[in-house]
Computed example of a mutant assay.
Amino acid sequence: MLWGGLALCVLLGGELGAVTAGFANLGTRAAVGLIVAGLVLAPWTGLAGFTVLHRVLRRRRGLHGPPVMETAAAKIEAVREIREGEEVLLQLDLTVAPATRPAYRANAGVDVHLSEVNDYRVGHVVVIDYDTARPWRIVVRKQPGADWAARLAAIRIDTAPPTTRRTAPHREHLGTAPLYLTATTAGLLASLWPLWALCS
C-alpha cells in the first residue's frame, strides 16, 4: 500500500514533467499532447497519491479506524471558564489515571449547567472516556453511572507531571506532506530529460 502511494506520487511528478516539457517546446505536436494529458491526469493522480499515503501513515500510527474508548478516573487540576451563561463551558486540566497505562495530563471541555459548576472544582475526581489511540480525546461523563459513583469518593489520584501532557498534533497529515513532495519531485526530475528529448 505504501509503495502504491509512492508510485502514484512519482507518476504525478512525471505528469507535471510532461506539462513543463510541453510548455517549453510549444512548437511541436508532441508538446500539445503532453500538456493535455498532464493537465487532465495530474489532479486525479495527485489526489489519489496523497489519500493513499495519508491512510497508510495513519494506520501505522494507530490512528486508522473508529476510536476505541476506555473509561478512567481523572482528577481536576485546574478549571477555566470558556463561556459564561446558564450553560457554562469549562476547560478542565486533568490528570487521567487509566487502569492499563501510566497517568498523564490532558485537557478536556465540558458543558454544564450553571448549577453544576461546583461539581467541577479543583481536586474533584470525575469519570471520563478516552480514546486509546488518541488519549488527548476525552469525553467527561456528567452521569458516571451507579458503579463509578460509588467508587469516586474512595479514589485518590496523584498529580501527573506536566511532561506527561498529551495533546493533539497540529495537523495529522504533516507527516504525509514531506513524503508526498519528495516522491513527486523525484518523479518530476526523472521525467524532465526524456520528455524534453521527446518534444525536441
Rank of each mutant, 00 (worst) to 15 (best):
W3Y: 09
G5I: 00
G5S: 04
L6T: 01
L6K: 01
L6S: 03
C9E: 14
C9Q: 14
L12S: 08
G14H: 03
G14N: 01
E15W: 07
E15R: 02
V19G: 09
G22V: 04
F23D: 08
A24W: 15
A24E: 11
N25H: 15
G27V: 05
T28G: 09
T28S: 13
A30M: 14
V32G: 11
G33P: 10
G33C: 11
I35R: 08
V36H: 12
V36L: 15
V36K: 08
A37Q: 11
A37D: 12
L39S: 13
V40G: 09
T45E: 08
T45L: 13
A48P: 13
A48T: 12
F50D: 04
L53Y: 09
R58S: 04
R58W: 02
R59M: 06
R60G: 03
H64W: 15
H64S: 14
G65S: 07
P66W: 03
P66R: 02
E70T: 08
E70C: 05
A73V: 02
K75I: 10
A78T: 08
I82H: 08
R83Y: 05
G85A: 08
E86I: 11
E87G: 12
E87Y: 13
V88D: 03
V88G: 00
L89W: 02
Q91M: 11
Q91C: 06
D93T: 13
L94Y: 00
T95D: 01
T95W: 01
V96I: 05
V96A: 02
A97T: 04
A97H: 06
T100I: 14
P102D: 11
A103W: 10
A103V: 12
Y104M: 03
A106W: 00
A106F: 00
G109P: 06
V110Q: 03
V112K: 05
H113N: 04
L114G: 07
S115N: 13
V117H: 09
V117N: 09
N118Q: 10
N118Y: 10
N118G: 10
Y120D: 07
R121N: 15
V126K: 00
V126I: 11
V126N: 01
V127H: 00
V127W: 00
Y130V: 01
A133F: 10
R137H: 06
I138M: 09
I138W: 04
V139Q: 01
V139S: 00
V140I: 11
R141P: 04
Q143G: 01
Q143T: 03
P144V: 08
P144G: 07
G145I: 10
W148P: 00
A150T: 14
R151P: 07
L152C: 08
L152Y: 12
A153W: 14
A153V: 10
A153M: 10
A154N: 09
A154V: 05
R156S: 13
I157M: 12
T159Q: 06
A160R: 00
A160V: 04
P161H: 05
T164D: 10
R165M: 01
R166F: 09
A168D: 00
P169W: 07
P169K: 05
E172N: 02
H173E: 13
H173S: 12
H173R: 05
H173Q: 10
T176Q: 05
A177I: 15
P178M: 13
L179I: 15
T182S: 12
T182E: 06
A183K: 03
G187V: 11
L188V: 07
L188T: 07
W193N: 12
W193S: 10
A197Q: 15
C199Y: 09
C199V: 12
S200V: 06
